[in-house]
Nucleic acid binder design. Structure first.
Length: 227
DNA sequence: GACCAGGCACATC
DNA sequence: GATGTGCATGGT
């Protein structure tokens, strides 16, 4: 079923704020606040953000558990561990050689930027901090935005595969857009609120996992009335 | 056995 | 700027 009012202003490909907030409200009502990201500490969130690149979260959980069991889930430990040993610990997350290198690069970044002190890193302001993250090898826009929102408490909207799939599959955003453009569309439409940015993306992932994978299972989707 | 999952860097055109 | 490719495990 389609909503009577289009969510998208077709001329400018801009989402309408009122409709987008209704989408969020429907998800929030269905699922409740998601209290994201799954992780005990901001540091764990950062590690998880790198490990989950193109990987099912269940596999990331196994890798994080390995790191915890080996007492390597800390800045100091990951700074010291060899790349080879790290790769073996994170093996279940896939791409383990690539991700071991990316984690080491990220630890080196934390070292030179704040000595591993995340409270100091949080003092950096946007958009400078985002640019710094994007300059780290292995940190692309989605990983950077995830770290910004869920580990550092900055209002930076995260676009991921689920966001693009849900909103383009139903014609809410037309054509192929770059990550930058997707982020602009949401940022323009939404009020700048950390809690909204945090929870909206979490709701999108929840919906995507349950109803909008590549083979959609639309039954029971809270967004059916919008689509 | 094929397909998929919360990307990214790099090469090539 | 757009497109193609390699990276790899574990669940369905």
């Amino acid at each position: 079923m389609r909503s009577s009012e289009p969510i998208l202003c077709q001329k400018k490909n801009r989402l309408k704020a009122s409709q987008l907030l209704r989408v969020y409200a429907a998800l929030r009502k269905a699922y409740g606040h998601q209290k994201w990201w799954p992780g005990d500490t901001p540091f764990e969130v950062m590690v998880g953000a790198i490990l989950t690149q193109n990987t099912a979260w269940t596999n990331v959980e196994k890798a994080i558990l390995n790191l915890k069991k080996a007492k390597k889930l800390s800045f100091a430990a990951l700074r010291r561990i060899s790349k080879e040993k790290l790769a073996q610990l994170i093996r279940p997350a896939g791409y383990f050689n690539i991700k071991a290198d990316r984690l080491k690069c990220f630890m080196a970044f934390l070292d030179r930027e704040c000595g591993g002190d995340l409270s100091e890193l949080k003092r950096s302001t946007m958009p400078v901090l985002r640019d710094k993250l994007l300059a780290v090898k292995g940190v692309g826009p989605e990983t950077a935005d995830s770290i910004l929102v869920y580990a550092l408490g900055k209002t930076s909207f995260v676009i991921d595969a689920y966001t693009q799939r849900i909103f383009s599959r139903h014609g809410l955003v037309k054509g192929h857009e770059t990550y930058h453009r997707w982020r602009e569309i949401f940022t323009w439409a939404l009020p700048k609120s950390l809690d909204l940015y945090n929870d909206f993306h979490a709701q999108i992932v929840r919906t995507g996992k349950e109803h909008c994978r590549k083979v959609p299972r639309c039954e029971g989707c809270p967004l059916q009335r919008f689509f």
